[in-house]
Design a binder for these strands. Structure first.
Length: 200
DNA sequence: CGCTCGATATTCT
DNA sequence: GAATATCGAGCGA
């Protein structure tokens, strides 16, 4: 079942937690045919609005972060550190003005060989565990910023999955308000990066 | 293992 | 000019 707007129209932190165990699906044309790349989401982080100093939206809307203020269930893709893309889904309760969930890692499930063509790793645990690795494996770029992830035709969507164990931890890779327990992982997944595991 | 560092777009000061 | 929601290479123990 594809996740609808109603799923994303709830508190950002709640959505981030509920996304653990769901299936991230990317469809693209590869070698002249339709290819499905998919994996189970095992690591997410919630980012808020003015109340969250670590959020890109904390200082208001810019050209880059406008997807965090738009309709929920849209992708927010940004380019950072001069070399990496990161994928978020906009999600917030109706009374909030902005919010998104950073998808930090998946367990590769479908199209594993095709994903590894873009990554060239020997250890499958390094294929898509980490926000930059995930976007490289799934070929997600700024071209996919603002797409409707509740529409299966957009090439990027999330399907509901089976329940998994979920643990809340501090957020990673930030200095402001990092102590908030807004990062969620499936602690039993063998596909967490070593760094991701060390923070669990 | 663990630590340091370079790459370098976007935003903010 | 400085900081950043990252990654991987290179180095030393």
């Amino acid at each position: 079942m594809i996740l609808e707007e109603s799923f994303y129209s709830r508190a950002t932190v709640q959505v981030a937690s509920d996304l653990i165990g769901c299936l991230l699906v990317r469809t693209l044309d590869l070698d002249g045919k339709r290819q499905r790349l998919a994996g189970v989401i095992v690591e997410t982080e919630a980012y808020g609005h003015a109340d969250d100093p670590a959020s890109h939206a904390c200082k208001g809307m810019t050209r880059r972060n406008e997807a965090m203020f738009g309709r929920v269930g849209r992708s927010y893709v940004y380019f950072t550190y001069g070399s990496h893309h990161c994928l978020n889904v906009s999600a917030r309760s109706p009374e909030a003005a902005a919010g998104a969930v950073l998808i930090r890692g998946i367990e590769p499930l479908e199209g594993v060989e095709e994903m590894n063509r873009f990554r060239q790793v020997g250890d499958m645990r390094l294929l898509a565990s980490g926000p930059g690795r995930l976007t490289q494996a799934m070929q997600i770029t700024l071209d996919h910023n603002g797409v409707d992830m509740t529409d299966p035709r957009s090439g990027l969507c999330i399907l509901g999955g089976s329940k998994r164990s979920v643990a809340a931890t501090a957020r990673i890779g930030i200095t402001k308000a990092a102590e908030r327990p807004w990062r969620f992982v499936d602690p039993q997944s063998p596909f967490l990066s070593r760094k991701a595991r060390s923070y669990s």
